[in-house]
């Protein structure tokens, strides 16, 4: 297992500094929550780590530098993410979605042939995310929460070592949130997990460590209790809620 080390990360959009010199270390196997008010730069940070946004500084995962590599190469190095609005392939079935996620390393011949059986990783992920009965449904017909789980399932079969989840429980019911949190625990057994989340209850229940971002900078970092006790955090963030 590897950890994530971010050094002096900066992302600038047309002169606007969205991420302003962030340093971040996430230990292997950690569940790190990334919180902060809207516009703090959380999503942009994940965009930079996954190669979507251009950034300066350094992002190392294990021994590999991620910055400057194209998105698909970073993905192949074991870094996976979900999006704030669930993006699954709506016209493909749940099974097809997972099968594609599992297949980036497949050879040409395998690609040109039909899928004869369900890969073991895919069927176990179907069980894990509770969508085994719906595997032949088009993903577009799934409920919102189910799409989020499908996305997580896609990360599982993709066999990523670092998961970056952007607001995975937004719009979920209480039960669904708990189920998702449990899922994260299981998943983090052999992976490093970074979760962006607004929901404070959810964070208290499932976070290992927390980083607070504000206006593109790290405001505070530590355990849930430490962060909650930090006066600076209370002022800009928790104080509001």
């Amino acid at each position: 297992m590897s950890g994530l080390v971010v050094r002096d990360l900066r992302v600038v959009f047309d002169g606007f500094v969205a991420v302003d010199g962030v340093d971040l270390e996430v230990a292997p196997g950690d569940i790190r929550f990334l919180i902060g008010p809207n516009g703090a730069g959380k999503t942009t940070l994940v965009d930079a780590v996954t190669g979507l946004a251009r950034a300066t500084g350094s992002v190392r995962f294990g021994d590999d530098e991620l910055l400057g590599r194209p998105v698909h190469r970073i993905a192949r190095m074991g870094v996976g993410r979900t999006f704030q609005t669930a993006t699954v392939f709506e016209e493909l079935t749940v099974l097809q979605n997972l099968d594609i996620a599992a297949g980036a390393g497949r050879g040409v011949l395998t690609m040109l042939r039909r899928r004869r059986s369900v890969p073991a990783a895919v069927s176990s992920a179907l069980e894990t995310i509770g969508l085994a009965d719906l595997r032949d449904r088009p993903a577009g017909a799934l409920a919102h929460g189910q799409k989020q789980w499908l996305e997580i399932g896609m990360l599982l079969v993709q066999d990523v070592k670092l998961l970056l989840l952007d607001e995975p429980v937004a719009g979920m019911s209480h039960d669904e949130r708990d189920a998702t949190g449990e899922l994260l625990r299981v998943v983090s057994a052999d992976r490093t997990v970074v979760v962006i989340e607004h929901d404070m209850d959810f964070m208290r229940s499932f976070a290992n460590t927390v980083t607070v971002l504000h206006a593109g900078k790290v405001l505070s970092e530590g355990t849930v209790a430490q962060v909650q006790a930090d006066p600076a955090v209370q002022q800009v963030y928790l104080g509001v809620g």
Binding site: V71, F83, Q96, G103, M154
Partner: peptide, 24 residues
């Protein structure tokens, strides 16, 4: 009908998403 065919539809519907799964 091959896996490539499924991937092609996926690229049509969300090219960026496919990129994040490790394909070009």
């Amino acid at each position: 009908q091959s896996r490539y065919g499924e991937l092609l539809v996926a690229v049509r519907d969300s090219e960026e998403r496919v990129r994040f799964l490790g394909y070009d």
